[in-house]
Amino acid sequence: MTAAVDFRLTDDQRALRDGTRELLAGRFGRDRLRAAVEAPALDRALWRELGEAGFFALRLPAAAGGVGLGLPEAVLVFEEAGRALLPGPLVACQVLASVVDGVATGERIAGLCAAAAGPVLWEHPADCDELILVEGAGKEGEGDRAFRAAASEVAAAPLASVDPLTPLARLTDFPRTAPLALDTSRLRREAALLTAAQQLGSAARTVEMAVDHARRREQFGVPIGSFQAVKHLCAQMLVRTEIARSAVYAASVTGDALEVAGAKLLADEAAVRNARDCLQVQGGMGFTWEADVHLHLKRAWLRAERWGAARELAELLAEGLVTGAEAESEAGVVE
């Protein structure tokens, strides 16, 4: 009766989460966030500090200068990044840490694009030293090919990004040299999961923002949080966050493709819906540029389109139902 399945965070995982939260609160507090909104070029010094803290080398083996941790730990760190709205190609640098030299330490910044039906979007084009392009059938990485180019060799057209913290460009030309030997299906899965982790962090943060406001703002002589209509909005925000948390954490442990897809679907929904509800709770103030909630909403929209959008994820999961792959992959976990 001693050991048993224990889904909860270990003490080390808790410490990692708390340490990351502290680091980000110290180095990327609200002032820095708002400054970044006005001037979105990445802070290279901060990026190197993130590198030193192990943000990108987290999963590299200790022998390769990494921290030797796994996907669950990376997910906890990225959840914190999502909470803090930390900008930059974080997911790209985390999954490419062993692919592009200098990325693990934060010295160099790599971007990652996936060819899609619509325009191929490049995040933080002005800040990337290198760009990796993944193109192919897309589904589970079958028939994928990956190419690498220096940022200066890539042609891109500017695009007014909906998210003030994520400058975007549209790829127009990319020099395709020899394809990289990359496990792209794994890369897509990990990128999706880390994106979902950021969505989870954002969702958890907007619940706090809404609840905090609901307790302090008074109307009709009472805190608006005593009105049931407001209370129930907040309760549903928490429910969405917790269901997404279970899905994201479990997917980080199993690494199962369908669980990752489900986790991304639920985390996208939680981040977007929670930001919307938070805005509603904040009233007119929530509609201002000055309030932070629009930054959460816009980033949530952006992330929801990256590494699997709802329409694609739902199809993938539906297919999993017929092939019975879900039952099997689940059995592999449970048994």
């Binding site: 279970s246 479990a250 489900g262 539906a318």
Partner: peptide, 20 residues
Amino acid sequence: RRRLGGLAAEFTALWRLTQW
């Protein structure tokens, strides 16, 4: 189809929430 796919995510997550 997508509705069923969404429900697959939902019930898997509910199972994970139970374990949690």
